[in-house]
Amino acid sequence: MTKAINWGIIGPGKIAHKFAQDLAQVEGARLSAVLSRSEERAREFARAYEAPHAYADPGAFLACPELDIVYIATPHSHHYEHAMRCLRAGVPVLCEKAFALNSAQAREMTGLAREKGVFLMEALWTRFLPSTIKVLELIEQGAIGRPLSVKADFGFKAQPDPEGRLFSPSLAGGALLDIGIYPVFLAYLILGQPGKLQAMAQFSPTGVDQELGVLFHYDNGGMAHLHATLQALTKTEAFIYGEEGTIHWHTRWHEPSSFSLISPEGRLSNFHFDWDGNGYVYEAKEAMRCLREGLQESPLWPLQQTEGLMALLDQVRSAIGLKYPGEA
Rank of each mutant, 00 (worst) to 15 (best):
G245I: 02
N278M: 01
A187K: 01
L313R: 04
A199D: 08
T229F: 02
N220K: 01
C290P: 05
L309M: 07
V281C: 03
W275G: 06
T206I: 04
A199G: 02
G308L: 11
H248L: 08
W249A: 13
T234P: 04
P264G: 07
G294T: 13
G192V: 04
M223F: 02
L189N: 06
P325S: 12
A287G: 08
F273K: 04
S269I: 07
F203S: 05
Q231D: 10
G321Y: 08
P264S: 05
R317D: 06
G266E: 02
P256E: 09
L312E: 02
S298Q: 02
Q304P: 00
G308E: 09
L233F: 10
Q202A: 10
W275Y: 15
L295F: 12
L322Q: 14
I262G: 02
W301C: 03
L191D: 10
R267P: 00
H227S: 12
L322C: 07
F203P: 10
T251Y: 08
A187E: 05
P256Q: 09
L291I: 13
M288H: 05
L215D: 09
S258Q: 13
T306G: 03
S257L: 03
I240R: 05
I247T: 03
W249C: 06
P194N: 06
D314H: 00
Y324R: 12
P302M: 03
D274G: 05
G192N: 02
L313P: 00
V316I: 15
A284Q: 06
G245K: 08
A284T: 10
S269W: 08
G308S: 09
L197W: 13
H250N: 09
L312A: 07
L230I: 03
T229I: 08
Y324M: 13
K196W: 13
Y280D: 00
L300M: 11
K235Y: 00
E211S: 05
Y241N: 12
T251C: 06
E297C: 09
V316H: 07
I262Q: 03
C290L: 04
G213S: 13
Y241H: 14
G308N: 08
K196V: 07
H225T: 11
W253C: 10
C290A: 06
M200K: 14
Y188F: 12
G326Y: 15
I240M: 03
D219T: 13
H250K: 14
Y218S: 13
H217Q: 13
I262V: 15
I247S: 04
W275F: 15
G245T: 03
F216C: 06
G308A: 09
L230M: 09
E307G: 12
D209L: 09
V281P: 00
H250Y: 09
L268G: 00
S298V: 03
H272A: 14
S263D: 11
L230C: 10
A187R: 03
A311M: 01
L309H: 06
A224H: 05
H272I: 08
L261T: 05
E211K: 09
Q202R: 15
L312T: 07
E283R: 01
D314C: 04
G279E: 00
S260M: 00
R317Q: 15
D209N: 15
A201V: 12
Q198E: 15
L322Y: 13
R267H: 11
Y241P: 00
T251W: 06
N270R: 10
H248R: 15
T206G: 06
G326H: 14
L212E: 12
